[in-house]
Design a protein around this nucleic acid. Structure first.
Lengths: 110, 110
DNA sequence: TGCCTCCTATCGGATCTCTATAGGGATAAT
DNA sequence: ATTATCCCTATAGAGATCCGATAGGAGGCA
């Protein structure tokens, strides 16, 4: 296990959250676990990073939330991708493609 | 031309600067131009981002500087990669590889 | 001298992520 | 019933970084 200890890439957290929610609605820590899962354990998002991001993204209208009960019958806030969120995911995915390509170029396409 | 207008990736600026200086010593705006060149015009680093980064990296000991004259015979501060900077470049290159791989995984290896 | 260009440099603001911590609520144990 | 414990949400404070705007020195040229 070697989770990225230091700062995530700016803007990449949003991308990972949006992509996680493609799998369906889930609560906060569920998103966190899913990010860790789909990145092969590379990215570990802690609550202090996750919740501010979720709130920000809800304000932007990319996700919506509702209170529900978790699988352990605990009070949990669930998050769901909105249409605008889906569009944002596509935009950020393209953006990532551009950035990734550019840096690969810079590093000598190694 | 569609240079990334918004925020660069955190920590990626250092990588691009270090990689630029592999080509040899050059002054500040020369680094800026070289980054734009090797990333195919994707990344445009402006002075307000560049110089704080150069100073920070000089404090870290990754680069050294000396005053000289530019190709146009103007006063210019030249920067050169140090041994520690070369090690840092290798480390950041590996880090980029990990991150890039993880996000590609997350996005479905598309 | 006056003007333009090149190059370095700094300041304030805005954004983002991290560490650390708080606290409600459900379950289980004694 | 009370205590402990885990799950989950949430916030505060700090630190780092990037950006836009701006300043200013210095050479070349008329």
């Amino acid at each position: 296990m070697s989770p990225e200890p230091t700062s995530l890439l700016q803007g990449t957290l949003d991308l990972l959250i949006l992509k996680s929610l493609i799998a369906g609605e889930m609560h906060g820590l569920g998103v966190s676990r899913r990010i860790q899962q789909i990145t092969g354990g590379t990215f570990v998002v802690k609550p202090g990073s996750l919740f501010p991001a979720l709130h920000r993204m809800e304000e932007e209208g990319w996700i919506s939330s509702f209170w529900g009960a978790s699988e352990n019958n605990r009070r949990a806030k669930y998050y769901r991708l909105s249409k605008a969120g889906l569009r944002q995911l596509e935009a950020e995915t393209k953006r990532w493609g551009r950035i990734s390509w550019a840096i690969a170029q810079a590093l000598g396409v190694s």
